[in-house]
């Protein structure tokens, strides 16, 4: 069943084939066929090189500009946001900024918000688009089916959001995309149609995840590629929260009295005789 045999494992014990690139000391550092120092450094954007590393394709400059905008608009310097809290706690614990940025960023690998929602949202809009196109399902049928799948809840990945209705990030990113001369593709058109229906029925709108997944799907990216490209999307806000709290005295970030944690467990009780067991 395995695709590899013992002789394959033996061959790979000390040999390392790599399609992305690598360092040939004294010659060059290669990246997907480019000489990094001569062809890429100072010539392409960081996000172009990120997408190149992940997909093997060097994207156009305007896509890098769109990625920059997406990374800015989703990463806020507000320590109340769950991932940013980790940055603030890291500062309070006097952990390193790398611990803060790494683990705060990891916190957003979540099904509620952040990067963890992106592969789910991308798979969903691509699946719904296929149903819309091939099975001729109407937008109404699609919405009803997804609400039924969630036991009657309006809980469709990419639509609605915690804490507030509406989404200023979608407005900003739609404006940015327009300025970069991007047209709405088939996935975005479907997402907008779903949004319109949800808005009319429930006053809920598309959220940033829904926008991003539809946009990336229109450009042909897979769910896995989307997750990889946006792996660090909240790090900016996490580091901001770390930097703010690192300057303050320890224990000063929302300090808690003993009574501020409500104990809801068993009442005080005596230990049983431990020699019996």
């Amino acid at each position: 069943m395995s695709t590899l045999k013992i002789e394959d494992y033996d061959r790979l014990r000390s040999k390392l084939p790599n399609r992305t690139g690598g360092w040939v000391p004294g010659t060059a550092v290669y990246c997907r066929g480019y000489d990094m120092m001569d062809d890429l450094v100072g010539r392409v954007d960081f996000f172009q090189s990120l997408v190149l590393n992940i997909t093997g394709q060097l994207p156009e400059e305007r896509f890098a500009k769109w990625l920059h905008a997406a990374h800015i608009c989703v990463s806020w310097p507000d320590p109340r946001i769950w991932c940013n809290q980790i940055g603030a706690y890291a500062a309070m614990a006097r952990a390193t900024v790398n611990a803060a940025s790494s683990f705060g960023n990891l916190a957003a690998d979540s099904v509620m918000y952040g990067q963890g929602t992106l592969p789910i949202g991308t798979r969903l809009i691509q699946r719904l688009h296929t149903q819309h196109l091939n099975e001729k399902k109407s937008v109404e049928e699609i919405v009803d089916q997804e609400i039924e799948r969630k036991g009657g809840k309006v809980n469709i990945m990419g639509f609605a959001r915690p804490l507030a209705s509406g989404d200023e990030r979608v407005v900003a990113m739609r404006r940015t995309a327009k300025n970069l001369a991007y047209q709405d593709g088939a996935h975005m058109q479907l997402a907008l149609a779903i949004e319109e229906l949800l808005y009319n029925r429930y006053s809920e709108t598309m959220n940033f995840t829904g926008y991003l997944c539809a946009f990336m799907s229109d450009l042909g990216y897979s769910a896995e590629q989307v997750h990889r490209i946006f792996a660090l999307i909240v790090v900016n806000g996490v580091t901001a929260s770390f930097s703010e709290e690192a300057e303050k005295p320890v224990d000063s970030f929302l300090p808690l009295r003993c009574e501020d944690i409500e104990y809801t467990g068993p009442a005080k009780r005596a230990l049983p005789d431990m020699t019996d067991e």
Binding site: P162, A164, V170, M206, C258, E259, D260, I261
Partner: peptide, 26 residues
């Protein structure tokens, strides 16, 4: 016409976190 302007849901967050595990007496 979809209106994406942001409006807080004013969710009823609790004042205190709670736990069944640990109780501290100050």
């Amino acid at each position: 016409m979809v209106n994406r302007s942001v409006k807080s849901r004013k969710e009823p967050f609790v004042k205190k976190a709670s736990t069944n595990i640990w109780q501290e007496q100050p």
